[in-house]
């Protein structure tokens, strides 16, 4: 009779312990996910947001129009420009002891309102690979122009689909 085969192999014991640990870890992870709401809500959502680019050339600012489609990731995105506002870039100046705002006609501030269908991952919204949050930098990009700016406001937001 071969008694060697009946001996408990310490490597087998370790493997067993590790399998149990991995199982316990996986169970803990799933419990944590369940406790935090079972993961994030994902889906599509239509929003309207305002983006601006400051100190852009007048020619660049003039190259965007209502109805222009948004371009990103080398493709037309599900979004369009629904509003355009162009004004002289405002600067601070001190005149005769007072601080005032003055207009600089050599550069423009471009504000565009965009209606877009964004991807939603819980509290995170993504449109064409760009995060949409007030204060985030944002490339305003259409078929005719682009300019680096930032998101100024989220004006409308429908419930997630």
């Amino acid at each position: 009779m071969n008694t060697r085969n009946k001996r408990f192999n310490w490597v087998d014991g370790l493997v067993l312990l590790l399998v149990l640990a991995v199982g316990a870890g996986g169970f803990y992870f799933l419990q944590q996910r369940k406790a935090s709401g079972g993961g994030v809500e994902t889906g599509k959502r239509e929003i309207v947001f305002l983006a601006e680019a400051v100190r852009v050339l007048p020619e660049v600012a003039a190259s965007v129009e209502i109805g222009d489609r948004i371009v990103a990731l080398n493709a037309i995105q599900d979004g369009e420009v629904v509003g355009v506002e162009i004004f002289d870039t405002q600067r601070e100046a001190a005149v005769d002891g007072a601080i005032v705002a003055v207009s600089d006609p050599n550069s423009k501030t471009l504000r565009v309102t965009i209606r877009a269908t964004v991807n939603r991952y819980g509290p995170y919204m993504d449109f064409g690979g760009q995060e949409i949050k007030v204060g985030s930098s944002y490339w305003i990009k259409t078929e005719g122009m682009h300019a680096l700016g930032s998101v100024v406001a989220i004006l409308e937001k429908e419930a997630g689909k």
Binding site: E92, A94, D96
Partner: peptide
């Protein structure tokens, strides 16, 4: 708050209007 020098060379403290 903002601090600038005006056209008379005086330092002006005030609020940023923008």
């Amino acid at each position: 708050p903002i601090t600038l020098v005006d056209n008379n060379g005086d330092v002006v403290n005030g609020s940023n209007p923008l």
